[in-house]
Design a protein around this nucleic acid. Structure first.
Length: 513
RNA sequence: GGGCGUGUAGCUCAAUGGCAGAGCAGCGGCCUUUUAAGCCGUUUGUUGAGGGUUCGAGCCCCUCCACGCUCACCA
């Protein structure tokens, strides 16, 4: 049983007293004729200069966010899904009993239904002059009630707003209830997802759903979550990517497919990582990575235009780092080799082996400590992260990646160490990852085998060999380009949120106690 | 997993090793156009948990827990 605070015990007593007085604190039915915004609009539609307008009757419903009792009258603000509106309760309309009942039993956080006529106060604020009211749902726990102070210049200062990041994440319901800008983040996130769908649908992509529970995992270098199916008596994995299933569909003559859904990666948590996140992947037959770059520019541009009406976005990386991002096409394109050469002084083309590249790194940058046992591709990735990545602020396609860290990408013609792959970088972190997909079943099989030997057995991101995927590819897979992007990362960039937590409703946290 | 930091009332925050406080919220009273309404009065605490040092610990030490920043990890 819950431990109730003294504040909660008072409210529990109010619930008991309400029931004793024959008033149900959680009635089953509710009514409303106007949202707060509709009520304001209805009032705006009539003459604005009359003190008491022609009578517009309205029934509103919402949550009490503030009360200002002054003797025989009380002002209150209620909030509904459309915004806030003021209530005006006065003994003249309600009579002394209902006035007293309101002040005795209604608290901030309660849901109320109020009927009356719309009016303007002497300051001009649209207000419901209440003639009847009804408790819709009594709140037991007090909302962390912030107070908004409107200064003379019109700016709003919040006092005692719920800010503790842990409390806000654990009790997202309370966070959402009292912090309207948090609700707005998630409205924007939904609009972004919707725009992505609209764009891909309009470009003849078919939205599909592939297994989340998989007998094998693959398509990314990540450790999976493992679970078990009792009846089948076999271990299952939560997917770490959609890639291998979506590309099976290209074998089946579905030329353009996409999926938006959850991926699960059993790895660390950071400002840009959560164990489960929403991924977009699409695959298009007869595309190569150049065409995917162009489609990416168009897709992100479409999202910017339709959701935000601009392609320029402010992004505060941290308190002292402020970026103005421009998503206009074309994005900057940087070849991996040139980018690493420019930022680290090392030409990876001159070092075709891991040993040679390792020596070059420790010679030129003695302060850096790459793991001496990793592959050439991972050393290149090390250089990327250390030197190049932090410089990629404006939207940039970094292209042509090492083969050994890209087992599903197609080789660059004439360059056996390099594959046709790009990643989109914005504000110094990875937004998306794409390549010309490998469709040669014999090469693919060799890549799987190479990975078995390149990775130590205890490296948990070592992917198992997916025999059925190879079998699918042997039936013939059209040349195609594929793309993956974390939807939270895109949302972070477009809504100026520097942590993934702010764009996920329920980010992963350790359990309490 | 490592390093640094934070944890005090429902919320936001104070408190040289010396009586645990403020504003808001709450409760009682006054107040018929307020909007952080105002005025008077007043309550609220396992100071994250446990142990230690000390005459005395919110404060110093140790262990643990949660969160934050950061590093590692994350093709």
């Amino acid at each position: 049983m819950a431990d109730y605070t003294s504040l909660e015990q008072i409210r529990l007593q109010k619930i008991a007293d309400l029931r004793a007085a024959g008033v149900e604190p959680y009635p089953t039915r509710a009514e409303r004729t106007h949202t707060s915004a509709q009520a304001v609009a209805a009032l705006d539609a009539v003459a604005k200069d009359s003190q008491v307008t022609e009578q517009i009757s309205a029934t509103l419903a919402g949550r009490i966010r503030a009360t200002r009792p002054m003797g025989k009258l009380t002002f209150a603000h209620i909030e509904d899904g459309a915004g806030k509106i003021q209530l005006f309760l006065r003994v003249n309309e309600l009579g002394p009993e209902k006035m007293e009942f309101f002040s005795k039993f209604f608290d901030i956080g309660d849901f109320i239904q109020a009927s009356g006529t719309l009016m303007r106060t002497k300051t001009g604020e649209a207000t419901l002059l209440v003639r009847e009211y009804k408790m819709l749902a009594k709140a037991v726990s007090p909302l962390p009630a912030a107070k908004d102070e409107t200064l003379e210049d019109g700016s709003v200062v919040r006092h005692a707003a719920l800010e503790d990041p842990e409390l806000r994440a654990r009790r997202r319901y309370a966070d959402l209830a009292v912090n309207p800008h948090i609700r707005e983040n998630f409205r924007k996130r939904a609009a972004i997802t919707k725009a992505i769908r609209a764009f891909l649908d309009a470009n003849d992509f078919l939205e599909v759903e592939t297994p989340i529970l998989q007998p094998l995992y693959g398509g990314a270098a990540a450790r999976p979550f493992t679970t078990h199916h009792n009846e089948l008596n076999q271990d299952m994995y939560l997917r770490i990517s959609f890639e291998l299933y979506l590309k099976r569909l290209l074998v089946g003559n579905l030329e353009r497919v996409y999926e938006i859904g959850r991926d699960f990666r059993n790895e660390g948590v950071s400002f840009k990582h959560n164990p489960e996140f929403t991924q977009l992947e699409f695959y298009a037959a007869y595309f190569d990575y150049q065409k995917v770059m162009e489609l990416t520019e168009a897709m992100i541009g479409y999202v910017c235009d339709t959701v935000f009406g601009t392609r320029e976005f402010a992004f505060d990386k941290d308190e002292n780092t402020h970026y103005e991002l421009d998503f206009s096409a074309p994005w900057q394109r940087i070849e991996m080799r040139q980018g690493i050469l420019a930022t680290s002084g090392i030409d990876i083309a001159e070092h075709p082996t891991a040993e040679s590249l390792f020596q070059a790194i420790v010679t030129r940058h003695p302060d850096k400590k790459p793991d001496p046992h990793i592959t050439r591709g991972k050393l290149i990735d090390f250089l990327l992260g250390e030197f190049l990545e932090p410089t990629l602020i404006q939207p940039t396609f970094l292209y042509d990646y090492p083969r050994d860290i890209s087992p599903l990408a197609k080789p660059k013609p004439g360059d056996p160490l390099t594959v046709e792959r790009f990643e989109g970088y914005v504000a110094g972190f990875e937004l998306c990852n794409a390549f010309t997909e490998l469709n040669d079943p014999l090469d693919q099989e060799q890549r799987f085998l190479d990975m078995q030997s390149d990775y130590r057995d205890d490296e948990e991101e070592k992917n198992p060999l997916d025999e059925d995927y190879l079998r699918a590819m042997r039936y013939g897979m059209p040349p195609n380009g594929g793309f993956g992007m974390g939807m939270e990362r895109l949302t972070m960039l477009l809504t100026n949120n520097r942590t993934i937590r702010e764009v996920m409703l329920f980010p992963a946290l350790r359990k309490e106690d």
